Computed example of a mutant assay.
Amino acid sequence: MRKLGLALLAVCVLAGAAFGAYPEKNIQGYIMWGAGGAMDNVSRAIVPIAQEHLGKTIILQNRTGATGAIATTFVANQPADGYSILFGAENPNLYKVTGLSQIDYDQFEPVFLMMANVGVVIVSKDSPYTSYRELIEAAASGKTITMGSTGPGGLPYVATTMIEKIHDVKFNKMQFDGEGPCITALMGGHIDAVAVGLLAAANFIHSGNVKGLAMISSERIESVASVPAVTEVYEEYRPYLPWGAFFGAFVRKETPAEVLDVLRSAFTKAFQDPRFDEFAKTMGGVKLGITGDDAKKYIRQNQSVAAWLLYDAGGAKFSPEEFGIERPQGK
């Protein structure tokens, strides 16, 4: 009996040691967007710090294509062992309603949501509109206002659709291949306004080349504190917020809880590191720092707003209702 007890104890110790070794090897990280973009920059800023706490290297590679669906599908088909991490943005939230893919964040566990890219409505420095209210009232009066867009699903498109729905106005949308070209067109006088991510606009706001009229947020953002939150002007936006792009790390849903704990601990410590804090301030993004159920709630809110706005605007192939995506409360 004593020998049996010792044997069982040895098995438990060995099992604990085996599990406690995670990670036993380097980890693969797959970034859904290309080199030099916001998702890439955020991932490459936090990973070197996180791996200091993991004791192993996270080998990053950009696996681009199909609005992030290539990387998302690839990681979804890897073993659920914590050795394949998806570094993704908000795009999978619209895969089902656009028909792009049946795989979205329902198949993943959020390790950590690092940052958000909050939308900001900007105009050129010479624009006659000096406030967000002036811009909206001009549109409501019937004046033709040309807004930049990047097509259905992109932040400028969804944000503009939100504005149209809340204020019952219509803009003339001019499509460009990315937020950068939108801002270039704005400064060149080809469009009147555009809603873009703050990460794309912050430097232009700071230099005075464009004016920020409103953050699509319920709070002012520290890096551009002079730009009012949209709810300071119109409370009607509050049910749709928080909303915007986000950047996070994800693993397959079946990943053991113990492995998730190790990863979440490492990314939490990296997030709190002064080096990442400095990066976030330089980038102009909003630090999130959420995980677990809070992260899931944040993702569901983002999906609810974007999917229903896209569907109501005729930009989705399928109703969000088909996938159990609830409308934003009261909307």
Rank of each mutant, 00 (worst) to 15 (best):
D40I: 08
A38D: 13
D40Q: 08
M39R: 03
F267H: 02
A245C: 11
A195E: 13
L135P: 02
C182V: 07
E232G: 05
F19R: 12
G285N: 11
Q272N: 15
A202R: 14
N41K: 11
G65S: 05
N62D: 13
V233Y: 05
A66E: 15
Q78D: 10
I136T: 03
F279S: 02
M115W: 06
G244Y: 01
F279A: 04
D177M: 12
T98N: 03
A10H: 05
A21I: 10
A18I: 12
Q61I: 09
M39Y: 06
L241D: 00
V97S: 00
S124V: 07
T67N: 13
A69R: 03
P256V: 02
D81F: 04
V121Q: 09
F246L: 15
E109W: 08
A201R: 02
A80R: 02
V13H: 08
V196F: 05
A249Q: 02
F250E: 05
P23L: 06
P152I: 05
A306T: 06
N117F: 05
V121W: 06
S127F: 02
G99A: 10
S141E: 06
A193L: 06
A249G: 05
M162V: 14
I58S: 03
G16N: 10
L186M: 04
M115Y: 10
G5D: 12
K3W: 09
E179V: 04
E164P: 01
K287M: 15
R133S: 15
S149D: 14
Y298H: 08
T64W: 03
D106Y: 04
W308D: 00
I85G: 01
M1F: 12
T291F: 07
Q329T: 13
A21N: 10
D104N: 11
I58A: 04
G248C: 04
K143D: 13
N302M: 08
S304H: 02
G315K: 01
A17S: 13
G55T: 10
R44A: 11
P156W: 00
Y237R: 00
N26G: 12
A45Q: 01
A266I: 03
T161C: 12
D168E: 15
V262R: 07
S265Q: 12
V158Q: 02
G55Y: 04
S304N: 06
K96N: 09
V47Y: 01
V118Q: 06
V118F: 07
L309F: 07
Y237Q: 06
T64G: 06
S84C: 09
G208I: 08
K287W: 07
A193C: 12
F87D: 02
S127W: 01
I136E: 00
G208L: 08
